[in-house]
Design a protein around this nucleic acid. Structure first.
Lengths: 196, 196
DNA sequence: TGCAAATTTTGCATAGCACGCAATATCAAC
DNA sequence: GTTGATATTGCGTGCTATGCAAAATTTGCA
């Protein structure tokens, strides 16, 4: 087994997972979440019900955004540290929110569902939790400290929280891009607690 | 129907909910979460299975901490604003973590479960989400701005995140009280992003 | 006390979730 | 092509969670 094989299979897995995600989102958006069963999702994605659970631990997980992966160069650039840490984090993260606005309709639906449907609130927060862990490791790497040290953890918690607040405000307000909201929220962190 | 009746029934409801919570926690701690069904919890609490779902929307919700309520005087005191906002928030919130250490064993179990069991991660984060909303309203009240303004939202997100980090570190480290960890984390927020 | 209304509890039925297991199919490498 | 590894699938099963209506309990009031 060469290294190529595992890579091929990994790709295939990701492609299938993405197919399922799209199918789930499509059904939920059109029919409403209460009228969508895992069986429907599986059928829509062209797989068996059983296979669905090979990819996702539970139904709602198919509605979570897929794990993010940054550009290698961007991470290296971030680790060198050109400006203030907060600025550099913002620069790195904002690349993720540039093209969000195309899917604004779907994202808005998801966030709105999150506010009414209890289980989706849980799912949304779990997604941000994973996001927080990634940010924590990035910051720890740049500060050259352990990932479970207090500072990187606190910073990551605040940054992830700010992004959540920003996205939440974005889907409500409808003015400005997602990136705008995130940028503003992150900028506000710097003097949040030090100015009064 | 006097106002007393609703009060009585509300009390009774809270008492029953608490009974269920204790039963659920007891069973989960002793038998492990995978070996506990809602039927067992209901039986342990002396109610029917159907009644369980009159109190909790889903099984894991019975493992969440009950909604907090602050002392009226403490809130009034907080709204007057004697020191810095961060300090006063810390003072107000820390009253909630004074007596946590008795239940350290149970809390530790819950947090450990949260790290292995996917669904409990969701539940834990939902609890913190509710916590965040309460904090947000408190801060908005003190700042005399709308609860969905950016500043109180960001502050609440950071504070709730810091508390989550602190509790997480506390159950790991085993040294110092929970209040100590929370106090340290909140204090660190002030200069988190402004000093480099 | 006793009656009537409101509320809560409960049993029953049911659709859907989620997983273990074993058989089958698919794929990569030699 | 054969072989070993991985993925998919069907089947069976126990549990979750909800609607509905009957029964029990609680409350206010006469």
């Amino acid at each position: 087994m060469t290294e190529c094989s595992g890579d091929l299979r990994a790709r295939r897995r990701m492609r299938t997972a993405d197919t399922i995600r799209k199918a789930a989102l499509r059904l939920v958006v059109t029919r409403g979440i209460d009228n969508v069963t895992t069986e429907m999702i599986a059928h829509e994605a062209g797989i068996s019900l059983r296979t669905f659970f090979n990819y996702f631990a539970f139904k709602e997980e198919a509605l979570m955004p897929p794990p993010i992966d940054f550009d290698e160069g961007a991470i290296a650039c971030f680790n060198e540290g050109k400006g203030s840490l907060l600025n550099d984090v913002a620069t790195l993260l904002l690349t993720q929110f540039e093209d969000v606005d195309e899917d604004r309709a779907q994202l808005r639906v998801l966030f709105e569902l999150s506010q009414t449907h209890p289980k989706l609130v849980l799912v949304r927060d779990k997604a941000f939790q994973q996001y927080e862990e990634i940010i924590c490791k990035l910051i720890a790497g740049r500060l050259k400290v352990a990932p479970d040290a207090l500072r990187p953890r606190l910073m990551a918690a605040c940054i992830a929280g700010a992004i959540k607040v920003a996205m939440s405000g974005w889907v409500r307000s409808s003015e400005g891009t997602a990136a705008d909201h995130v940028r503003r929220a992150l900028a506000a962190l710097e003097t949040l607690f030090s100015e009064n």
